[in-house]
């Protein structure tokens, strides 16, 4: 059960496009300068496939006085290596820490490219990578093909906890949250005012929910929104989608999750069967949102059984 759940997490593109990717498996990563010494690599607003090689995720790095902190390592060994090459072209300083924001495969399967460096994550993330990592990797091989060549899960080497982390001559605020998964780490760079929100925040793409607890997620969003109101805040790098200079992606993520939760509860209360829930139309506000239809269908699978159980249990 656990195993396939993990395998199924990221899978929506069951029918793979027939076209072959570029033979050189080049992700063409470009470091976007978000603020002084803070950079992000922005992935596509797509599902995993053999053309994008899993580059549907945002990663980033912060250049401190004494070294570089990397945030998430992408979906594959190739991605991690290419990312590290680009980082080296930006700064000659050494990478002193890689942080995995959470245990989803597009955020940690590039870890091998940083095997010579400390890799840190929340304890819950380390445990989840240990239990689910292999199944995640298998699933991405299936979805992304040869882009994954050589990729194996590599566990973080150190556990992180909430609070201030002085690293590379830089002061980072580690914010330990949950909701998208059981352990979601947001990283706020106090010097640049850039918030790396991980997958707690999606921008211009429907959120994914395979391990979501929506009520817990709302609390995390509230905390991140409060931070975005603080004086030093400059920019937000979501886990997926464009960089933002304000809290709009937080509100967008909350709006999707609020609708999703209410809609599934209402459907369960109305006595609908899962197939009827799957065929419901998206509200106008979300019709044009990239991958909204496929993420809605995936979320019904993840979240409707609990809504249904609640509606049935409360009947007596």
């Amino acid at each position: 059960m656990i195993r396939w759940l993990c395998a199924g997490l990221v899978c929506c593109a069951l029918a793979l496009p027939g076209a072959a990717p570029a033979g050189d498996f080049d992700y063409a990563l470009q470091a976007r300068n978000v603020a002084p010494d803070a950079y992000a690599f922005i992935g596509r607003d797509e599902d995993f496939d053999t053309l994008n090689g899993g580059n549907i995720v945002n990663t980033g790095f912060i250049v401190g006085r004494d070294g570089i902190v990397v945030i998430d390592s992408g979906p594959s060994l190739r991605y991690g290596r290419q990312m590290r090459e680009v980082i080296a072209s930006v700064s000659a300083l050494p990478v002193v820490l890689l942080i995995n924001t959470h245990h989803h495969p597009d955020h940690f399967l590039g870890n091998q490219a940083f095997a010579d460096r400390p890799i840190g994550a929340l304890p819950g993330t380390v445990q989840a990578i240990a239990s689910d990592g292999d199944a995640f990797a298998e699933n991405l091989y299936r979805l992304c093909g040869d882009w994954m060549k050589g990729t194996e899960p590599l566990l973080p080497t150190t556990t992180l906890r909430a609070g201030r982390l002085d690293v590379a001559g830089r002061s980072l605020r580690l914010i330990a949250l949950a909701g998208h998964t059981g352990a979601d780490l947001a990283v706020y760079d106090e010097t640049s005012g850039v918030l790396f929100a991980g997958d707690l925040v999606f921008n211009g793409r429907a959120p994914t929910t395979p391990h979501a607890d929506i009520d817990v997620w709302f609390k995390a969003l509230d905390e991140l929104e409060a931070l975005s109101d603080s004086p030093g805040f400059v920019a937000l790098v979501p886990g997926h989608g464009a960089i933002s200079r304000d809290a709009s992606p937080i509100r967008q993520t909350r709006a999707w999750l609020s609708w999703l939760q209410a809609s599934l509860r209402e459907a369960a209360e109305a006595g609908l069967d899962m197939n009827e829930v799957l065929t419901r139309a998206l509200p106008a506000a979300f019709v044009a949102l990239p991958v909204a239809a496929s993420e809605y269908r995936r979320s019904v699978g993840h979240l409707f059984p609990a809504a249904e159980k609640q509606a049935l249990d409360h009947a007596h």
């Binding site: 396939w4 759940l5 199924g8 929506c12 197939n275 799957l278 699978g301 993840h302």
Partner: peptide, 16 residues
């Protein structure tokens, strides 16, 4: 027989 053409979760495939 109504079922999703692509079923993400093979342990809980809805069928009507």
């Amino acid at each position: 027989v109504l079922a999703p053409a692509n079923a993400e979760n093979p342990t809980q495939v809805p069928v009507t």
